[in-house]
């Protein structure tokens, strides 16, 4: 019975990831913990006070959300060019995770902005482009869910993923351009320069978020592969 998995071998991924996952999980916990503890122990900023500590939650979330879209685009490319089912699964599972990190980035950004800007939401360049990134993720997920045939859904989503990846820097550029040209400056470009006391906790928490993403991603890919296997077995049993 040839199925999707006759043509590709996710077995190697399953073996590799099951060996890697415990280490990844431990490393994730350690780095996140270190980042958060160091972050909370860091001195208040002379301008922003204690709210600066939100940075350790916000900046890594934003970074991870962008990285996730990058990985999604790379997986989409593999999926289109080499038609590899593992790439389909990797792209599919990266999207909801990326969307969650985007929401996290938006919420922490808004909380951080409240004391700085005096409003829960301002159309600051970064927040706006993250909101658009969220819509890109949602569109991608919606397209996956709307097409029933799995292979076709994977290809269509891959095209969308790549178009989005090409467009994302342009969106970013246009939003930045708009913020610079709307006359009322809200947020100085570049933001406050980061003092070195904040650098270590930021680095740790950035690494922690990145590892967290990879841990969750691998778990999601494994689940999806197992689900597909189960479905293939059920179908084979019914035939």
């Amino acid at each position: 019975m040839p199925s999707l998995f006759t043509y590709a071998n996710p077995k190697r991924f399953m073996d590799l990831s099951s060996a890697l996952l415990p280490w990844l999980t431990v490393a994730t916990v350690l780095f996140l913990f270190a980042g958060l503890v160091l972050g909370f122990l860091s001195p208040p900023d002379y301008q922003q006070g204690d709210t600066v500590k939100l940075m350790f939650l916000h900046v890594p979330a934003a970074w991870t959300a962008m990285m996730a879209y990058g990985l999604l685009a790379v997986a989409s490319f593999f999926s289109l060019v080499w038609r590899h089912p593992l790439a389909d699964v990797a792209a599919k599972t990266a999207a909801p995770l990326g969307a969650v990190f985007t929401v996290l980035g938006l919420v922490t950004g808004s909380l951080w902005g409240r004391p700085m800007w005096g409003a829960w939401w301002v159309w600051d360049a970064r927040l706006t482009s993250f909101l658009l990134l969220l819509f890109l993720y949602l569109g991608y997920i919606a397209l996956w869910n709307a097409i029933e045939d799995e292979t076709r859904a994977a290809r269509a989503a891959a095209i969308l993923g790549l178009v989005g990846a090409i467009n994302l820097p342009i969106i970013e550029f246009s939003v930045n351009w708009q913020t610079l040209h709307q006359g009322e400056s809200i947020f100085r470009e570049g933001g406050p320069t980061i003092a070195s006391v904040f650098l270590w906790p930021l680095g740790f928490s950035g690494l922690g978020y990145t590892l967290l993403f990879f841990t969750l991603w691998f778990v999601r890919i494994r689940t999806e592969i197992l689900e597909r296997r189960a479905r293939a077995l059920l179908l084979a049993g019914a035939a």
Partner: peptide, 9 residues
């Protein structure tokens, strides 16, 4: 020629 639709040959 081989045709597969979904998982069915």
């Amino acid at each position: 020629l081989t045709a597969i639709r979904g998982q069915r040959v």
